[in-house]
Write a protein that binds this DNA or RNA. Sequence first.
DNA 1: CTGTATCTTGAATGCCAATCAGCGACGAGA
DNA 2: TCTCGTCGCTGATTGGCATTCAAGATACAG
Lengths: 180, 180
Amino acid sequence: MARNKRHLEPKVKKEEIELVAMALLKEKGYDNTSMAEIARSAGVAANTIYWYFENKDHVLIAVLNRVVSHAMEEVITQREQPLRTRVLKLIAQVESSGSLMTDVHARVRHSPKVQAWHDQFHGMVEQLAVAELVNAGVGPDEAQLDAKLLIYVIEGLLAHPHKLQEREQIIDQALKRIFA
Amino acid sequence: MARNKRHLEPKVKKEEIELVAMALLKEKGYDNTSMAEIARSAGVAANTIYWYFENKDHVLIAVLNRVVSHAMEEVITQREQPLRTRVLKLIAQVESSGSLMTDVHARVRHSPKVQAWHDQFHGMVEQLAVAELVNAGVGPDEAQLDAKLLIYVIEGLLAHPHKLQEREQIIDQALKRIFA
DNA sequence: CTGTATCTTGAATGCCAATCAGCGACGAGA
DNA sequence: TCTCGTCGCTGATTGGCATTCAAGATACAG
């Protein structure tokens, strides 16, 4: 039935799997999305995915890279906005990727690769946050710690549902406390 | 082979399962502990657990209740200590239960019962934190928000590994920012 | 035309949570 | 003392899952 399609899509197949996986993982989360379902949506046999990806966690990582690089592009376009606005937009942005970030934390203990991705991602975010804070007037020695505080607060907001207004209040309070 | 043991242990069996499950879940986490393993350690057949608990998440909840009530007892004995000491002790305490708290966040999306447990737990912790902050001199209107900030920072510390010294620095910075 | 590397697949394998249909022990009532 | 229903427990099974295996199909090089 389904034949070899190499002549049709030479290197696009992997990309298509990633796109399909991204949609499904965003919508239903890691645990509720089976490899079989990803394969079905991509129009391939279940085990075909294993030719392109070592295992399910590697699919997750590929999806995460797409999501993050897209988010970074968005962030860049907001360069002119005040910090508060950018933080709120960032949270809304990440939230639109569903439970992906929570899934990462859950998979970190199972997969060293996801662990590594997470650590590197955290490092990058912290660097960005430190730069933002220094730029906004926080002392360089304190910026390192304040960056962690801010990131953990944002993670808390992402991990727990909040009404929009409450979320803004919390961010405002955090910024107020940092820029006392 | 294994016969009915009702005459031997009337209502202790459930407790034993909980104790065994607590040890295993603390040590290896939710996903890496199978029902079969819990059963084997408790000396019963795999499906016997389902006589006492609706499903695996209910076992988790029973274990969480034990862990939390034990932690609360510990907290009470620390009543005299300064806030900073108590927070650090609390973090160390929760950390000794392994990845249990992370597991809760991961299961929240799968099980409404775990969701409910989590929400109620968060409410309780927030109440305690607000009381602490008000008692330490934070304005009552701000205490609500600061409590959330502090809790999210603590959750961040629990979710990510830190050297002891770094953890203390972060807590100190958080308290410094709140009590500016 | 032939061999080799590249894709793709159907059919396993093995682990897991959860279910099913009973089996033996006890306790109440005859 | 009998018996019958409920309680505590069990072996066997089911269905879903990630992952592996052996082999088929395709393209390309020589």
